[in-house]
Each structure stands twice: as structure tokens, then as C-alpha cells.
Design a protein around this nucleic acid. Structure first.
Ligand SMILES: [Zn+2]
Length: 314
DNA sequence: GATGCCGGGGT
DNA sequence: ACCCCGGCATC
């Protein structure tokens, strides 16, 4: 699954990498003629570099070096932001008398690129994730996102050589957009919470996790929590877990106001609005009805499985 | 009570 | 994924 696209150079210890030390290999000019900068060299994640930013020179840490268009994404701790620079505009040493006080706080180990290993990669990852955590996908393209993509792919394994060349983020087998991911995880959290709360609040020893949830017959428990116009959260009388369902507020409101208000005994919980999504039963006869239980084998699979009929759609 | 099917369990 | 079923909502 690992994208084989374009990574030709990385295999046995990057052919592009000059044999000399990563640091010394460039600096030539007395101080910063861009062309003498990092021209044609390779930067590795975690490497300390300097760029001009807002008329000032800033120290930063390489996050990623895109060899294709020779762009380097750099994290500037000083400004707490990520920038992209052409390789020519990046220095490995201060180009002016300005010595970054910040840079001293980031101790990048001096090692040859060949030895770029987990430590450095992880360090860079940590930097990125620290600085731009939740909004990561909106940050500069190709920086943190890719770092994360690396992590998603198995704990930052970067099996084939490191050097975040994971270019279009297609490294992950399940191509799900980041936002969806977030949603999903949120849901997962919700579910987890839900479960635990279920157990906690209902004092269920355990057995089967989670039964029921949406119904409002007296006595049975549940719960549908949702928002009403007044922004309250309804719970069953036993105060069961927060269960958020996707019902639009408007819809909910309509339901609440249309519902025959049978005062619920001993309860402030709202009338029946079995929030959401149990599909309305269509009038079409389904396999069960059509063929009868005795011919169950003629039912569509869904019907046999007690799922929504696939043969007689509504 | 019958029917439809969601949610969940087992394999 | 496939299969089954408890149990709820609705007819
Ligand atoms: Zn069917």
C-alpha cells in the first residue's frame, strides 16, 4: 500500500544526500548569499535552519524538504508558525550578526543525514503536532498534515527511509478525509462515553453493554437527549447518558410541538419524539408479508436478517 | 398480534 | 462479511 510513487531516492540511504555532514555542506559565503545557501543540498527534518521572515532572520526547524519543487517547510518556534521557503532562501547558519536566542533552545543533534532516525523524526513530529494540533488540516499544506499522515500509517513508522516524502497524503490505505476522521473519532468518543455512562448511571454490572436507547415508554429507560429550542438537554428520568442524534433543531422543535402532549407521569421528559432515524415504515409489503414465514427462504437476505428489506423498497 | 428493522452478538 | 436474533416502533 505504501505509495511507490516518486520516492526513488530514498531507499538505501538516500543517494542525494551528500556524504559530508549535513551542516557543513553548504555554507560558503561569508554571510548569506542565497545562492550559496543550501543550493542543491538536502535538509532533513529537525535540522536547524534560518530564514528571513518579516525582514528579520529567524531560526527554525526543518519539517520537511520537498525535493520536487525544492521547497522547505519550516517551523519557527520564535513565531510559532510554519513557513515555506525555497531552498535557496534557507540557511543553515545565521546570515547576519543576529544570533537567534531561540534557536539555542532547540537542540538538534548533529548527525549525518544517513543517521536520521526515529529520534529526529519523532522530534519533528512532536514539534509539529504541538504547535498546530487541532486545526492541523488547515495549516500549511504539506507540513503537519503529512507528519500526521506518517503517524497514522502506523506510529510514524516511515518504513522506507524516512524523509517525509509522503507526498499527497495518500499513504493511508483508507483514504478518509481528515475532517471525517475527526468526526469519526468524536463519535467514537461519544460512543465510549455513552457506554460507560450507561453502565455507571444504570449501575449495570455489565453483561451486555448498552441496550436500548431511544424509546419513551414509561419504565423503559432511555433516553434521547437532544436540543430543544430552549437549549435544554432532555434525559430520561433516570438520567441516562447523553446521546446525541442528528436531528436538526428545527425538526426537533416541530416534533416537540406537534407531538400530542401526553403528560408523562412523573417525568419532565418530553413526549415521544423518538429522535431520529428509525425509518418510517413504508406501506409496501415486505418479503415476510409477501412470502410468509413458512417461505422464509424466499425472502431477501435483508429480510431474513431482519434488516431493512432490499427487495421491496419503499 | 404482526410486521419491519435497528442494534448488537456470534462466527 | 455473513448470519442470527432481541426487542422496539409501528401497523
Ligand atoms: Zn425483503
Amino acid at each position: 500500500m505504501v505509495p511507490k510513487t516518486r520516492l526513488g531516492k530514498r531507499s538505501p540511504l538516500g543517494t542525494l544526500v551528500c556524504g559530508s555532514s549535513a551542516e557543513g555542506l553548504t555554507e560558503t559565503g561569508p554571510h548569506g548569499c542565497p545562492d550559496s545557501g543550501l543550493h542543491r543540498s538536502k535538509l532533513y527534518p529537525g535540522q536547524k535552519v534560518y530564514v528571513h521572515c518579516g525582514g528579520q532572520e529567524c531560526g527554525g526547524v526543518v519539517e520537511q524538504h520537498n525535493h520536487v519543487d525544492n521547497e522547505v517547510s519550516i517551523f519557527l518556534p520564535q513565531l510559532n508558525q510554519h513557513v515555506h521557503r525555497k531552498l535557496e532562501d534557507v540557511w543553515t547558519r545565521p546570515t547576519s550578526s543576529f544570533t537567534s536566542s531561540v534557536s539555542s533552545s532547540i537542540d538538534v543533534p548533529r548527525r549525518s543525514p544517513e543517521t536520521v532516525d526515529m529520534d529526529e523524526i519523532m522530534a519533528a513530529m512532536v514539534l509539529t503536532s504541538l504547535s498546530c494540533s487541532p486545526v492541523i488540516q488547515h495549516s500549511a499544506p504539506g507540513s503537519a498534515t503529512q507528519a500526521l499522515c506518517g503517524m497514522e500509517n502506523g506510529g510514524g513508522e516511515l518504513s522506507d527511509g524516512g524523509y517525509w516524502s509522503c507526498d499527497h497524503g495518500n499513504g493511508s490505505p483508507a483514504p478518509s478525509p481528515p475532517i471525517a476522521e475527526m468526526d469519526k473519532s468524536a463519535l467514537l468518543v461519544d460512543e465510549g462515553l455513552d457506554m460507560e455512562l450507561d453502565q455507571m448511571l444504570f449501575n449495570k454490572p455489565t453483561a451486555r453493554k448498552r441496550k436500548v436507547v431511544t424509546q419513551s415508554k414509561p419504565v423503559s429507560v432511555p433516553v434521547s437527549c437532544h436540543w430543544t429550542p430552549s437549549l435544554t438537554v432532555h434525559q430520561s428520568k433516570q438520567g441516562s447518558p447523553f446521546r446525541l442524534r442528528s436531528v436538526s433543531v428545527g425538526e426537533q422543535w416541530l416534533q416537540n410541538n406537534n407531538a400530542t402532549f401526553r403528560p408523562h407521569p412523573a417525568s419532565v421528559s418530553p413526549p415521544r419524539n423518538h429522535c431520529t432515524s428509525r425509518r418510517i415504515r413504508g406501506e409496501a409489503k415486505k418479503c415476510r408479508k409477501v412470502y410468509g414465514i413458512e417461505h422464509r427462504d424466499q425472502w431477501c437476505t435483508a429480510c431474513r436478517w431482519k434488516k431493512a428489506c432490499q427487495r421491496f423498497l419503499d
